[in-house]
Write a protein that binds this DNA or RNA. Sequence first.
RNA 1: GCUGUUGUAGCUCAGGGGUAGAGCACGUCAUUGGUAAUGACGAGGUCGGUGGUUCAAUUCCACUCAACAGCACCA
Length: 661
Amino acid sequence: MANPAQSPLSLEFPDGSVREFDSGITGAQIAEGISKSLAKKSVAYVLNGELTDLAEPIGSSGKIEIVTRTDDQALELIRHDCAHVLAEAVQEIWPDTKVTIGPVIENGFYYDFDRDEPFTPEDLEAIEKKMRQIIARNLPFEKRVVSRDEARVLFENMGENYKVELLDAIPEGEDVKLYSQGEWTDLCRGPHMPSTGQVGNAFKLMSVAGAYWRGDSDNQMLSRIYGTAWADEKQLKQYLFMLEEAQKRDHRKLGREMDLFHFQEEGPGVVFWHGKGWKVFQSLVNYMRRRVEEHGYEEVNAPQILDKALWEQSGHWGWYRENMFTTVTEDDRQFAIKPMNCPGHVQIFKNGLRSYRELPVRLAEFGAVHRYEPSGALHGLLRVRGFTQDDAHVFCTEEQLEAECLRINDLMMSVYADFGFEEVLVKLATRPEKRVGTDAMWDHAEGILRNVLEKMTAESDGRIKTGINEGEGTFYGPKFEYTLKDAIGREWQMGTTQVDFALPERFSAFYIDANSNKKQPVMVHRAICGSIERFIGILIENYAGHFPLWIAPIQAVIATITSEADDYGEKVAETLREAGLRVDTDFRNEKISYKVREHSLAKVPAIIAIGAREAEQGTVSIRRLGSKHQTSMTLEEAVTSLTEEAIAPDVRRKRDAKAAA
RNA sequence: GCUGUUGUAGCUCAGGGGUAGAGCACGUCAUUGGUAAUGACGAGGUCGGUGGUUCAAUUCCACUCAACAGCACCA
């Protein structure tokens, strides 16, 4: 870039046309050359996939695209520029505040400041006002490439010690770039739009929060301001509306309204399941129990409390002691309440001699585990201290490993589909810093998973997208993390598959191979729901409380219109119960509209209203949740359609397969 | 765990140095009403906990517990 070569540039445009330009020409000049209107709208260009300042000379030949403010790619620039404007606004109001970093994040941006006083909501309003002023000034973003020393002197003089630290972290050989908007200058990698005016007004400061400098809890805590920014008002409104929708789905709120569960002070992070919530829980466990059985697992149950020695042997004591609930008995023996099921399952595997003929051994458990999670991490059902894992451990030979991983993947994808999650992101999490085992072992295990990931993606018909989570594996092995998208586009991490060569070794687990030699099995840890509690929380949010019939705690309420219909109402309820449906009756002396309202708010899937007319004709009037209308049918028809709908998806699948055969 | 905010009836919230108030929910009575709130009356709270200041604390202060948002953590 520093060398304005004389050779002409050959640039290919999105429409496929190729044109020659003199070197040294900038993106802005190219846009100008195409049309005045394009020049006006353009905010940056993309050269060979790299987003670049409009004012930057084109560095090489290749594919070029002029980015206008309304392009998706410009959103990142709007947000990044908005972060700069935010920082300038804050320093204009409070000049003593030090700036640190302000990156773009999903839906917006944030900026971390060092300031003695925390920001208040009123401060946010003042800052936002100032930001709109700065945007109205519409001053150009000007880039300067400077020497390290020059930048260092500049920031030291400004007292911006965080910027000096960031400067020192820029790798040798990389340009040090400064961006200024008027008087205000920041160390920044860029790119930016031509001027602050292009940020527009479709932004909003959302919240203030503490955040550690460089994300390290050993460092000082800074004040972070979060904002959201969009290309136009409409998008902003849409986003704010989505947030409101998400709030309405909050499982903590719905859990209370639907009378599913509660929490109270004496038990931080442990759930009080009410009758209805426990019904959902049981439906889910029963479903998983059937699925696991059909996939060749054996359900077991390992003790809640085990001697510390076992946890030392597994390595958990070393890594996670602070997060374990422990107890010391009268005779000074130390025990731990299990935070995991794996050591228990290894003991079951090890009990007695195992032959290679038995492998793979697949042990499943709905294991209640307890972890002393940091108080700040607790969040409704999504992060608790006592929960039930749909856990399983597969002990197999190395030759069987790949097939077992693929088999697990099949089960996972099928389970997720049964709950309506079609799109799945599978990330491979690789070796973390805190780990056991040799590098060779890790190379081996990661290699196998990479291979498996490729295969299952290929076989998924596009349902599986993949990614890598560097350094996020467990201490005993790499893992897959299954992430699902819910009904309103939020992502949740759910299942995981972990390959483990370390624990079998630590516990000296072995089997007898075909040559009568002792051999160490490989162990695969896997959970599909992850935690039943968490899974239910996610289901509540995903369905917004509108559970499908097969999992709804109360499937129908029989509500009589007048007391004359009570006898018939009782008969209807009996009939439906005999057909296996979970039915409540509401014969209270209340108006039907009152009953409809109440059961609708409680998210009962079907309200069956019964009056004199129905009693006389032997019919029922069904109003489905979410509908404003009702359908009249005979009692027999109602039984048939409701029981059919209430069949769990796996049971229906089996029945249909049988019928087809 | 860290930063910040919050804690008043079952729920949503108002109030404020002189021991509390609304709506909904709850109970009783009347009402038998055809698909999202029938009416009247009534009951319900040592204002998260502990300690301090004060003649007096739910209100002010300190500590503590819990929740919320974010960060850090998540075997």
